[in-house]
Design a protein around this nucleic acid. Structure first.
Lengths: 246, 246
DNA sequence: GTAATAATCTCTTATTATGAGATTTCATCA
DNA sequence: TGATGAAATCTCATAATAAGAGATTATTAC
């Protein structure tokens, strides 16, 4: 995974930006990436000219305006957004809730659209924020549909979290829980991500049955009982399979 | 502006995505960019691995999930968003309107945040969408604060639009109109971008007095008279200068 | 199964990215 | 305003590697 050519090395600069580190001083980038001074400045110049980076007041760099523009364009071309948004609006009309679609990519789960009708239940996962793999209905709805070879290492990496939400003590027990989720076709979680909120999620599958996204409804625990959850689960699954078709 | 090295050429692939063309077939990219087949596929592979591109069903490519993630990060680190958002919330609390901040970069005006309290006045410029230079209070509030050398070519490029909104028949007359905007410290536009809407915008200036952004309130024309507009203009200018300070 | 298309590989050559160090630009304070 | 320190850019020889023609291998579609 370490960059082997100069093209990957330029892009490597973009990889270092994360929620923990939104601003980088050139000096730190040199140290962190191991590029020489002229090389780093060359890269920065190119990335700034492309608008992907910009320099903030104190000479350090942050992500730039072209990123913002590209996200707008990505919204226009994303099949999940285009086909999913009307469904989300319908869900939020029917229930006082938070409805969202999250994409599965490279061991990350990323929110791509969300709609809300619940006044005080604000989603802590807006568009673009990656979500943990170990907790929540969304993660489970996706993991349960992965092939075993893909699933097992993920379980092992997140065993502490998975254990703490009661999916089993050992990796094998967790895998059995996942099987049950797969059979049900959806996952339910009580307050695993947001206290007091119930999450109900179903996977969007591609034509080979591999998960590519998840549809999730989050609703205040006080608003639903078991039967209510079942009803929502049916709707969520319907939406997910509808999106799968496209 | 034509790429001179391989690093700029890879990034050149990202430049071709626009509102008019959200999806590209590799074959078309080869023709459009003039890269050979192996080279183009090499570039695509690298950009896909970085998550900046992804391939859609029909083998063509679109912007990818890392773009979405980077926009989320950009939101977290953007001083305009961080310092501006509370102000926008205050403005929308005070008036039934649409309040937004737009960044000026590379001859483009790009929305970075927007808040709204008006039910049926939906902004047609969400985050990331570039806005025309020839129409609207926002464009004018920025252009009026550019140095003459920068301003004149822009006026000439957009003369048709500028004329059609009544800023003057010749470039020189338009420039005089801009001077008046500059003296007033804000721009007002009636239905130039959205029919029936009034736009009131003031520039955010850096420490050298160069415009870097604009604060704009859009409100239904039926809700305000001249005095109302003046009141809003004062608030908008206050917000803009407050943001300028940071 | 086969045909058609799409993507990747191979390998040589010319191109060009690289980094040490010098130089220039920029900002800051006396 | 001029001096001081830091940040960014430039120069240039050399090693590194990106490029492309054409062949080969995947992937679809039928």
């Amino acid at each position: 995974m370490k960059p082997s050519n100069s093209l990957e090395r330029v892009l490597g600069v973009l990889e270092v930006f994360s929620e923990d580190r939104l601003e980088w001083a050139p000096e730190d980038l040199m140290a962190h990436l191991g590029y020489s001074r002229p090389t780093l400045y060359r890269y920065l110049k190119i990335l700034k000219d492309a608008g992907l980076l910009m320099s903030s007041r104190n000479a350090s760099v942050t992500l730039g305006p072209r990123v913002v523009e590209m996200d707008y364009l990505a919204r226009q071309s994303d099949a999940l957004v285009l086909s999913g948004q009307p469904h989300l609006k319908a869900l939020t009309r029917r229930y006082s809730c938070n409805a969202m679609i999250l994409r599965w990519y490279g061991n990350k789960i990323l929110c791509v659209v969300s709609e809300t009708s619940a006044k005080n239940l604000v989603s802590s996962y807006p568009r673009g924020r990656p979500m943990p793999l170990g907790r929540g209905a969304i993660a489970r709805s996706i993991m349960a549909f992965l092939p075993r070879a893909r699933l097992v290492p993920l379980i092992e990496q997140n065993l502490d979290d998975l254990r703490s939400v009661g999916l089993g003590m050992t990796a094998e027990e967790v895998r059995q829980s996942m099987k049950r989720v797969r059979r049900a076709g959806h996952a339910v979680a009580f307050g695993e991500v947001t206290a007091g909120a119930v999450g109900i999620a179903a996977p969007v599958l591609d034509d080979r049955g591999a998960p590519i996204a998840s549809v999730c409804v989050t609703i205040a625990g006080t608003l639903v009982d078991g039967a209510g959850i079942d009803r929502i689960a049916i709707d969520v699954k319907a939406v997910a399979s509808d999106i799968s078709a496209a």
